[in-house]
């Protein structure tokens, strides 16, 4: 039968997918960045359920901290709103 942790894994990663989709559709780049870091938090939970704590430690620090900061620096050198279409 389905084990409980696999069920939690599916729920958590589905939330991650939802947030990554929202991040893709967002035209305000800073908001998209915030959504994408929420998505990485869910994926980090997924990695924890998959018993990979080493990955969790690196993934959280990189995806929520370093990656977000790099992209904010990149946005500060261009424009905040995505235009077109």
């Amino acid at each position: 039968m389905i084990e409980l942790h696999l069920l939690i894994l599916v729920i958590v990663v589905s939330f991650g997918f939802v947030f990554s989709y929202l991040a893709m559709k967002e035209h305000d780049l800073l908001k998209a960045l915030a959504l994408s870091s929420v998505q990485s938090t869910f994926f980090a939970l997924g990695f924890y359920i998959l018993a990979a704590p080493d990955i969790v430690l690196a993934y959280l620090a990189i995806a929520v901290g370093a990656y977000t900061a790099l992209v904010i620096l990149a946005i500060s050198k261009t424009e905040r709103y995505e235009v077109g279409e």
Binding site: D54, L57, A58, A61, I62, G65, A66
Partner: peptide
């Protein structure tokens, strides 16, 4: 892992 946490 420790290094990236420190960078944060």
């Amino acid at each position: 892992q420790g290094g990236s946490a420190m960078a944060v």
